[in-house]
Write a protein that binds this DNA or RNA. Structure first.
Length: 566
RNA sequence: CGGGGCGUAGCGCAGCCUGGUAGCGCACCACAAUGGGGUUGUGGGGGUCGCGAGUUCGAUUCUCGCCGCCCCGACCA
């Protein structure tokens, strides 16, 4: 590519609303232009990179045996009503109407469409197993789109759906996809980690998320120091300490705490460690009042809570509820002597505490020296409902847990039969009986990967592309071309030569001064740069520099060609 | 959806409080000089001041409504 024939659109100033570095650099490098909230145009440069990611994903999916197809982005309401998701998917589903007032949605995912396809196409067990994939634009009407293409409303995704007669076969494909994803992210040059995850709205049993590791990641991921245990914070468990509960030694005492409403303030007032306090979280599920108890230094994991208590819907209690059930005001609530009967759920750790502090259900007071069995009944329900913290014991005994940030770029699920069942997809088995196939589903956020890669690979000058994603692998920069044609000719012939060798090369023939030219090439992250200059040519030398290194190498033509990596 | 903020040239911003038809930097165009890290000079083009109503002799400026965008929170494959 000659840059004079390309639309390079770098800008000096960072638009004010770009918060994270990948968004800023994608804008400055001119890969992206915003059209509306969470909706972006990919420029020619951006598209080259997006296509690179796509190509790697496509190649590896095909190598794994999956078959590419393309489903529509617009989907009819009827399909979504068959699975109940027209309502259940919620506000993220963008609904549309055509001229006949028929309802459609812009596909946020394609389980319905593929299952419809499968029930029409797949008749016999002989056609199974099969794994269909597509690379398609999706739309999810995110509550708060942010960080550019990292959390956009419109985005490019690879999604794959597999069909199987039995669980064992599904599990085999699931492992196959795990291996495929590992190859994909490795080839893309990303530092990543696979973690156990919640299955969320898509449903199903087993699920792994693939996270690119980056401090700016929106997800917290947990891993063990001495084993390969890794899980999303939503799923991560800690091994409860097997120490026996201490025996009650302190008397129950009502402490005046006139203004202390938080565990932190109580701990400070009473000069106690935070872990001797218990925080009470008041919830309403339907007409039931639930008090969830957590150690003062822990936080509630709402996903675990909903799961363990089998709650489909709940909300935080408001002041009225608290007054009604506990007869007090927020900040002083606790499980002792509620005004009316309530349901108490204690976290595993709380159930094992002794001589602790809780709210007294009386404004301005907390109890200290509280003990289970003596001052209040043993908790009626004990469950793991907290977020793990760094330093907790790993659940498999593999040392201690650490928490790092990650960007979710892939997710694999064993969906099971729910979609096939609700949409009546069946195949005939070798006995001639109709069987409901089991499904797996496997997603990769193509556009998100581009942003994630930048989060991991950049410096003060700009992006540093992993070779597999770079828009070009080499940039040729002719310098001071105004004194005759020597430099230009040499650059041109080098350009031709590299092209003949199938190296993706860009020639910066825009006639810029060296400063702007270099900084553009650095900003857009071309991994290798060759400077052609009069002064170098006199000695028969070219100046070679790798993007991730600060120093130049002066090489003759033969060595230069050897030095260049494809 | 709740709270906060912002909409003035392609981008970044000033002007608004105290009404009198708009300015700066970058970018863009032309010419000239310069030529190894965003060079310099001269000249130039570009804005119904988000939209609508109201107040006023007069509204970018004051008031109300709407729309869009951003941040925090809730939420989320």
């Amino acid at each position: 590519m000659r840059l004079s024939q390309f639309h390079l659109a770098t800008v000096k100033e960072t638009p004010a609303d770009a918060e994270i570095v990948s968004h800023q650099l994608m804008l400055r490098a001119g890969m992206l232009r915003k059209l509306a909230a969470g909706i972006y145009t990919w420029t020619p440069l951006g598209l080259r990179i997006l296509r690179k990611v796509e190509a790697v994903v496509r190649e590896e999916m095909e190598r794994s045996g999956a078959i590419e197809m393309l489903m529509p982005s617009i989907q009819p309401r009827e399909l979504w009503e068959e699975t109940g998701r027209w309502k259940k998917f919620g506000g993220q589903l963008l609904k549309l109407q055509d001229r006949k007032k028929q309802f459609f949605c812009y596909g946020p995912t394609h389980e319905e469409v593929i299952t419809d396809f499968a029930r029409n196409e797949l008749k016999s067990y002989r056609q199974l197993p099969v794994n269909f994939f597509q690379i398609q634009t999706k739309f999810r009407d995110e509550i708060r789109p942010r960080f550019g293409v990292m959390r956009a409303r419109e985005f490019l995704m690879k999604d794959a759906y597999s069909f199987h007669l039995d669980q064992e076969c599904l599990a085999r494909e699931y492992r196959n996809m795990f291996a495929t994803y590992t190859r994909i992210f490795t080839r893309l040059g990303l530092r990543f980690r696979a973690v156990k995850a919640d299955t969320g709205a898509i449903g199903g049993q087993a699920s792994y998320e693939f996270h690119v590791l980056a401090d700016s990641g929106e997800d917290a991921i947990v891993f063990a120091s001495e084993s390969d245990y890794a899980a999303n914070i939503e799923m991560a468990q800690a091994k409860p300490s097997n120490a026996l509960r201490e025996s009650p030694t302190e008397p129950l005492y009502k402490q005046p705490t006139p203004t202390q409403k938080t565990c932190e303030a109580i701990a400070e007032l009473l000069n106690l460690p935070l872990c001797k306090t218990v925080k009470s979280i008041a919830l309403m599920s339907g007409s039931e009042f639930i008090l969830a108890l957590l150690r003062g230094d822990h936080t509630l994991n709402e996903i675990k809570l909903a799961r363990r208590l089998n709650l489909t819907e709940y909300r935080m209690a408001n002041e009225e509820d608290i007054d009604h059930y506990l007869g007090t005001t927020p900040g002083f609530i606790g499980p002792l002597s509620p005004h009316r009967p309530i349901r108490v759920v204690a976290d595993l750790e709380v159930a094992n505490m002794a001589n602790f502090v809780v709210g007294a259900n009386q404004t301005g007071f907390h109890y200290s020296g509280v003990n289970w069995g003596r001052d209040l009944p043993e908790p009626e329900q004990i469950a793991d409902i907290r977020n793990v913290v760094a330093g907790d014991l790993a659940p498999d005994g593999g040392g201690y847990l650490s928490i790092i940030r990650g960007i979710e770029v892939g997710h694999i699920f064993q969906l099971g039969s729910q979609y096939a069942e609700s949409m009546h997809a069946v195949v005939t088995d070798d006995q001639g009986h109709a069987r409901t196939p089991l499904m797996g589903c496997y997603g990769i956020g193509i556009s998100r990967i581009v942003a994630a890669a930048i989060e991991q690979n950049h410096d003060a000058a700009g992006i540093i592309w992993p070779t597999s994603m770079a828009p070009w692998s080499v940039a040729i920069c002719p310098i001071n071309t105004q004194h005759g044609t020597k430099v230009q000719d040499a650059a041109e012939s080098l350009y031709q030569d590299l092209q003949n060798r199938n190296i993706e090369v860009v020639l910066d023939n825009r006639g810029l001064r060296p400063g702007p030219m270099f900084s553009d090439m650095e900003l857009i992250g071309i991994p290798q740069r060759i400077v052609v200059s009069e002064r170098g040519l006199k000695q028969g030398l070219y100046e070679y520099r790798a993007r991730h290194r600060p120093d130049n190498e002066y090489l003759d033509y033969t060595t230069l060609l050897e030095r260049i990596q494809t």
